[in-house]
Design a protein around this nucleic acid. Structure first.
Lengths: 225, 225
DNA sequence: GCGAAAATGATAGTAAAACTATTTTTTGAA
DNA sequence: TTCAAAAAATAGTTTTACTATCATTTTCGC
């Protein structure tokens, strides 16, 4: 079985649908590689144009600016996580296993698929960890939020919140706990890598396993109390 | 009693000590106002120079770039929080009250002091919430971390971790819980303001109280289990 | 296969941001 | 009072962000 997954990303994010042309697909794919390589601050449309072997002007026909392109990538990422989550949860009845499954997904690298043009999952993961907060921590957040561009994130949050409420219907903060889980999984992965004194990771730990154990411990303590 | 608080900020962050001259002090003070007003992305040294009534070149003699200036401001902020925390905790014996005190500090606005040239606490708070992650979520994090520029954050984290371990010596993740507390207090305050569907805040709630209640519930459930 | 429309490419800009070199002014110690 | 060092102002350059124009290629209905 060799299939390709794509998601409809909210059309207000782009000027021209990048899924609709070869150039558009290359722009997004290469952008992921380049943002991973350079970090978002050093990433420019000029550099991307060289990588894709096109011109800056062509990229501007797809995306208004690099912030929108990052938003596009993260919308894709959130949709993908939601898709994988639905897949993993559908066969599970036990709410404990469901929660464990969610934590697994949030703390481990995405499965690399065999498809040709699909995005590099390792890079996507790193972008979600290191760059995702930059799409909402901007002055214009309320303005851009009007177009539902954060819907995939909110949906993901609602999905996790439903599992939380299923597990413990009396818990008062299922959504906040969901967003905390997502953000903390990113933060702790980043910290354990680059600023380990902000965590309790040890030299012998695998970072991913450390974050997994920390999150499991705290989710079940909160919900079992 | 009318005193002024200043902190020694790691000298590798600046090129020339801004505390040592009137111009330097004005640069930092006005930078806080301007970053609050414009957001970090739209903040430039050019605009700051106009505000301070000096030139771009003068500002560059104090700080290598705007990232370093933000780092300076946050070092000051973290040191200040640590100072206030020491102050608040010193008279408390009861570890429950200590933890509550910490959560209070992390979720409510800083006391506005009467001093003349001191920084605007409301603005500082907002900068910590919306911009602090931008100082470490950069490609150069390991490089800049070598100069101990995140020490005040790590110290703050260690202080909170000590209270956590004091409260529950068997808890395995005191540092990770501390950094999660700090980051989550920022995130949930931001989300409840701008992306409320990522939280459980209600229309009648005060946002600050909501975050306070969420974090209290969270911390004590984790540590009492 | 033809022609109009859409997409892309090439070229050439402008404006602002980021950063630097050089000159001028200030200031404070001999 | 002089003069050297520090601070500040002036005047740049380079890079980034973004736009306009027009030629060329591709697509697609007929």
């Amino acid at each position: 079985m060799d299939f390709q997954i794509t998601f409809k990303v909210n059309s207000s994010i782009y000027l021209r649908d990048p899924e609709a042309s070869e150039l558009g697909k290359q722009i997004v794919k290469q952008a992921i590689d380049l943002i991973y390589e350079l970090g978002f601050e050093h990433f420019t449309f000029k550099k991307l144009a060289i990588q894709v072997n096109t011109t800056e002007a062509s990229i501007y026909r797809y995306f208004e600016n690099k912030h929108r392109l990052l938003l596009y990538i993260l919308n894709w990422y959130w949709s993908y996580i939601e898709f994988l989550m639905g897949f993993k949860l559908q066969n599970l009845e036990n709410p404990v296993l469901k929660l464990q499954s969610i934590i697994d997904l949030l703390t481990h690298e995405l499965p690399e698929s065999s498809g040709r043009l699909e995005y590099n999952k390792k890079f996507l993961n790193r972008i979600a960890i290191a760059e995702s907060s930059k799409v909402y921590l901007v002055k214009e957040v309320s303005e851009i939020n009007k177009n539902e561009v954060f819907k995939p994130y909110k949906d993901l949050c609602a999905t996790i919140a439903a599992v939380i409420s299923d597990y413990n219907p009396t818990y008062k903060y299922p959504r906040s706990l969901s967003s905390t889980l997502i953000e903390t999984s990113h933060n702790q992965q980043y910290f354990s890598n680059y600023l380990p004194r902000l965590t309790d990771v040890t030299q012998t730990d695998s970072n991913k396993d450390f974050v997994h154990d920390f999150l499991s411990d705290f989710v079940f303590k909160i919900l079992d109390k």
